[in-house]
Simulated assay, not measured.
Amino acid sequence: MCLLTQSDLKRIFEKVDVNGDGLLSLEELNRMLEITGTCQYSIQELESLVETKSLGFSEFLFFYNSISEQQNGESRGSGEAEELESDLVKTFKVFDLDGDGFITSHELESVLKRLGMWDDTNCNDSTTMIRFYDTNFDGRLDFQEFKNMMLVSRA
C-alpha cells in the first residue's frame, strides 16, 4: 500500500467532511471507507474502533496510520513493526535535545544544522515546518506527531 502525504490526507479529510465542521462523523468516515473499498465496518464497529463519535484531523491521521499498519501487517511481521517503532524513538531522541519529550523549532533547526541540512540562507522556516505537523497546535512536536510525520512522509 502506498502511503499518502499529509497534504494528500488533509485534502481527503476536507473532501470527506461534507458539512465542513472540521470533524469527520462516523457516517462520513464510513462512507469514505466504503467508497475506497478500504475496510467494511458498521457504524457500531467504527465507534468501538475509534472510541469517539467524530474525528478531528489528528485523529484521522492516527486512524489512517493504524489502518495502513494493519493492512501492511500481512507483508511486515510484528518484529519489523517493533523495529520501526524503536528506530522512530531513537530518531525522536536525536531531535529532542533537552529530553523534555518535545521537538521545538529551535531543536529542529539545531540538529539540521549539525547534519549540514540547514544554513542561515535556507528559505524554509523551522517554525513553519513544526507547525505543519503540530496537530494540537502547541508549537512543538510530541512523539505521536513526530511518528505521524515520519510515517506519512515515507511515501
Rank of each mutant, 00 (worst) to 15 (best):
S68W: 10
T36A: 03
T121N: 11
N19T: 11
E80R: 03
D8Y: 12
V16C: 12
F57Y: 11
M149C: 09
E85I: 00
Q71V: 09
F60D: 06
S110M: 10
S68D: 10
D119M: 01
F143G: 01
D125M: 07
S54H: 09
R131F: 10
N136Y: 03
F146A: 14
S110P: 01
K10F: 09
D142E: 15
L61I: 10
V50W: 04
G139S: 06
S42A: 06
I67D: 08
A81V: 13
T104Q: 00
G77W: 01
K53W: 03
G56D: 15
N124P: 05
E27T: 15
D96H: 10
Q40A: 02
M129E: 15
E109P: 05
L141S: 06
Q44Y: 03
V89D: 09
S75Q: 07
S7H: 04
I35C: 02
I12D: 01
G79R: 03
Q40G: 03
N148P: 06
S75R: 09
G73K: 02
N30L: 11
E69L: 11
N19L: 13
M1Q: 01
G139D: 01
F102H: 01
S58C: 02
V50S: 03
K90I: 06
E59R: 06
L97E: 06
G79A: 04
G99T: 13
E51M: 06
W118A: 06
L26D: 10
G20M: 10
F92T: 09
S126M: 12
D8F: 07
N30K: 08
F132H: 15
N124G: 04
G79K: 03
L24N: 12
N148G: 14
E45A: 08
E69I: 07
E107Y: 02
M32H: 04
G99K: 06
T128I: 13
D21I: 13
T128Y: 07
T52R: 14
N65T: 06
D98F: 09
N72V: 08
F102G: 07
G101H: 07
T5Q: 09
D142A: 04
N122H: 12
S68C: 09
D138E: 12
S25T: 15
S153I: 01
D96G: 08
D119Y: 00
T5P: 00
I130N: 00
F13R: 05
E145I: 14
E82W: 07
I67M: 13
